[in-house]
Design a protein around this nucleic acid. Structure first.
Length: 277
DNA sequence: CACGACTCCTGCTGGC
DNA sequence: TGCCAGCAGGAGTCGT
């Protein structure tokens, strides 16, 4: 499931191949994802050079430019979305929704569950931040601004459990269900703890844990970039070895407790009741 | 405002 | 062995 690390690794994998490339043609096969893929892409993009590939939260932003046209492609992988390069003319399979044909190869977007998004925001690169989907995005967890003090202040008005708060992309971007559980475990904080009842010191610990968890995942993914960007077959998402996620009933890796699964805001949470408080 | 429930979609898993 | 209900998940939207 792509969370921030997977999207960042994807971005880094695309960079050397895509940056500076010129789009020759766009093929949209299934216009309906989470939102309808704008058909204007087919008219606007051909001739455009991809000048930068950025990430905001779990969104990939491809800045495109040609005389008279400037804009950014907004791509979200949802939960099953994938971008990969295929040779020109390779027959599309089921769920291959969009192709961007470049000079050397074709970039293909696949998304079985259609939770992804492919949109277009006209204007200069900074304009994309005003898009409704991006304007409401929260703080980047790997930025310097994401500190214990920031988190502590942000949690002050949240009386609900911390775990859904961490997953709220309007607060902090990029932390999905897996890394939320993993980060809380690393910090020794229960997913059930009320967000506004976490001390400043423990917020600092949590921020550190989130940073370490995400960074470790990015580092782990770095070695597998080629596998799924140059996919010649089926390659899933890399996954760091989870300490608690999906380990219900298994022994805690840190103490002699047992990992438990609970349900919060409709999502599974995993934690060790004996070392997370 | 804060927060939970619901929703989209398809593929996989587990129970019978 | 086969079928199908139920679950998985990001994030917008809606109702409380």
């Amino acid at each position: 499931m792509p969370e921030l690390p997977e999207v960042e690794v994807c971005r880094r994998g695309l960079l050397p191949e895509l940056e500076g490339g010129v789009v020759q043609q766009v093929v949209i096969r299934a216009p309906k994802l989470r939102q309808t893929i704008p058909t204007e892409l087919s008219n606007v993009l051909p001739g455009c050079r991809i000048v930068a590939i950025r990430r905001r939260g779990k969104y990939l932003l491809l800045d495109c430019m040609r005389p008279g046209v400037e804009g950014s492609l907004i791509i979200h992988l949802g939960m099953s979305g994938k971008l990969r390069f295929v040779p020109h003319g390779q027959a599309p399979a089921r769920h291959d929704h969009v192709d961007w044909v470049l000079a050397g190869q074709t970039l293909r977007f696949t998304d079985p569950r259609r939770f992804g998004v492919v949109l277009w925001q006209p204007g200069p690169p900074e304009q994309v931040e005003t898009h409704p989907l991006l304007a409401s995005q929260g703080i980047e967890p790997l930025s310097d601004a994401f500190t214990g003090a920031w988190l502590h202040a942000a949690c002050a008005r949240r009386s609900g459990p911390i775990k859904p708060v961490l997953m709220d992309s309007h607060m902090v971007v990029g932390i999905g269900n897996i890394y939320a559980s993993e980060s809380l475990f690393r910090a020794g904080i229960s997913p059930l703890r009320a967000a506004n009842r976490i001390s400043l010191a423990r917020c600092e610990t949590l921020v550190r844990a989130i940073r370490e968890t995400l960074s470790a995942a990015i580092a782990a993914g770095g070695s597998t970039i080629r596998d799924y960007v140059h996919s010649d077959g089926s390659t899933g998402w890399f996954q760091i070895e989870a300490a608690v996620y999906d380990r219900d009933g298994k022994p805690c890796v840190r103490c002699d407790g047992v990992v438990r699964q609970i349900r919060q805001a409709g999502r599974s949470s995993y934690y060790c009741p004996s070392c997370q408080h």
